[in-house]
Design a protein around this nucleic acid. Structure first.
Lengths: 117, 117
DNA sequence: GTATTACATCGACAGTCGTGAGTCTTATTG
DNA sequence: CAATAAGACTCACGACTGTCGATGTAATAC
């Protein structure tokens, strides 16, 4: 329910004077925005978003070798995307012999999710 | 409640044969992932995320001249970010004389928000 | 031991990004 | 009319991105 509060007819301002009452902006938001933007950026690639989707739906740890055939990209590229997700703190991995198992870090998406709701 | 379903000790596979039972991946997700990644990418910059935050909290249309003093970037750069948000379908604008008023498109974030929840 | 497999890292490439300075268009003011 | 202001656009710059092929590392299989 957007309310059009004062779409006031504005006036050209003298060069030094402020144009309008600036919208207040809480400083607390700033570092939180940095973190949320970091997560959003990591999700800002279709393949990474689908990777997270698969990992979440699987509700457990998924071997990289299971992920490779799902996407039409090379193994090094997939590894690169997984690293991006790791760097963003969204997923983590666990080595077991030759195999690496990935999983979504619980609550890693909660901040962004809460803000979006 | 992550359940470790069969972290089966895997075996090295012969070169041609499949390594593991690949996780199924619904094709429906694919275009939806494209759209959500587009939105996430647009939110993947702290300034743009804060811009959307301001526009949402204001619950109405906000003049660009009110946005400029909130951020430590030049006016052309702010305009550039607003264009990115417009291209991603997150915000839209409305000209009124010299002034441009921006607002968040209702439900633009709903897809991503629902997926994250 | 050697060969092979899983996965990560490196190097290189074209493409995109965020940024500011400058310019342009349009509308208001006088 | 001329001057000025708001905001979008253009250009250029360095930085980063997604991609692949090649290479490196470590563990398994023989």
């Amino acid at each position: 329910m957007p309310v059009d509060l004062e779409l006031s007819p504005k006036h050209k301002r003298a060069n030094g004077s402020p144009c309008c009452e600036p919208v207040v902006y809480p400083d607390v938001q700033r570092e939180e925005a940095l973190r949320m933007a970091e997560v959003a950026k990591a999700l800002g690639d279709p393949i990474r978003l689908q990777l997270v989707d698969v990992l979440r739906k699987h509700a457990g740890k998924v071997c990289v070798c299971e992920l490779v055939p799902l996407f039409d990209i090379s193994q090094p590229t997939l590894s690169h995307h997984l690293k991006k997700l790791r760097d963003a703190g969204i997923v983590d991995s666990e080595r077991q012999g030759l195999w690496a198992y990935y999983y979504v870090i619980p609550d890693a998406l909660e901040g962004l999710s809460a803000w979006l709701s």
